[in-house]
């Protein structure tokens, strides 16, 4: 239950309010699986759950992407190289990377939802031969709000990964698609009978996306989402993150839509 002090190696400003911290891992035998998060602690200010956005194949780094939305994330995004933040974790469930092997993989995300999916993408590219067609569908607010823009550009240059990006608002300078992320589905090549979809973004976007994926022929046992809830402990004790029968911190954040059942999508559950 004690945060482990970890030194900040570097800070990258991704967007106006979004920063990526490169931290020294809390232990020598550090490892995590794509989809997991940590509780990050700003000394004396507090602790918040932050998804890990780095490469699961690199145990020497703990990379986390944070959007400043409150006092703790404000403090965490104000750090500079050499500062120390506290880390507990990793916590939570993983994206179904093994289950998806041998299948087409559809990665659908919006906004900062790309951060918790980046480890899954990096894992997929590292083990590219294990997967069929791999498609990343990413929706952002505007061309200026694209997270990891350089890396997206690099990924678009690959022949073994299809990257489609759409934005909600743009002027004529933007040459790409404008519209919601689901409008990209019919441009992706995947077998709806067997493909696996990993979905992460604002809850409304995920609900909308799941409906559209089901319309395209996918079944809920192959649809996975990453849920967000208030968390204070990370170990299923504080009660804050409950979503129906789930403690999102330990039963999630990655949940299969088959496990979620209708109850989890009920208003205000």
């Amino acid at each position: 239950m004690h945060p482990v002090p970890c030194r900040v190696r570097s800070v990258v400003r991704e967007l106006d309010d979004t920063f990526t911290l490169d931290l020294e891992p809390p232990s020598d035998d550090w490892s995590f699986v794509p989809g997991q998060f940590t509780m990050l602690y700003a000394f004396g200010v507090g602790e918040v759950p932050i998804s890990i956005s780095g490469d699961p194949g690199d145990p020497t780094r703990l990379v986390q992407t944070i959007r400043a939305v409150g006092p703790v994330s404000d403090a965490l995004t104000s750090v500079v190289a050499g500062d120390v933040v506290g880390v507990r974790g990793p916590f939570g469930t993983a994206w179904p990377m093994e289950f998806a092997e041998g299948r087409d993989l559809l990665i659908m995300t919006g906004g900062i939802g790309l951060a918790p999916l980046r480890p899954a993408i990096l894992h997929t590219l590292e083990h590219r031969d294990r997967y069929g067609n791999v498609t990343l569908l990413y929706g952002a607010r505007s061309p200026e709000d694209l997270l990891f823009a350089d890396q997206l550009q690099q990924w678009r240059g690959r022949f073994d990964l299809e990257v489609l990006i759409t934005v909600d608002h743009a002027d004529r300078m933007w040459r790409g698609p404008v519209g919601v992320v689901t409008s990209l589905i019919n441009r992706a090549s995947f077998d709806p009978e067997s493909a696996v979809a990993l979905v992460c973004g604002p809850e409304i976007m995920m609900r909308f996306t799941i409906q559209e994926l089901e319309r395209s022929g996918m079944t809920e046992d192959r649809l996975y989402v990453s849920m967000e809830r208030n968390m204070k402990c990370g170990i299923g004790l504080c009660g804050h993150c409950q979503l129906g029968k789930f403690f999102v911190c330990k039963d999630g954040p990655v949940l299969s839509c088959a496990a979620m059942t209708g109850a989890c999508w009920t208003r205000e559950v």
Binding site: V45, G239, H240
Partner: peptide, 24 residues
């Protein structure tokens, strides 16, 4: 009922802090 929250407190001079659990 077991739900709880934590409060992080800091000394005015920033030299020390503590985490306190309260019922929520």
């Amino acid at each position: 009922c077991f739900c709880s929250t934590v409060e992080d407190r800091q000394a005015l001079d920033g030299s020390s802090a503590e985490r306190v659990r309260t019922w929520d």
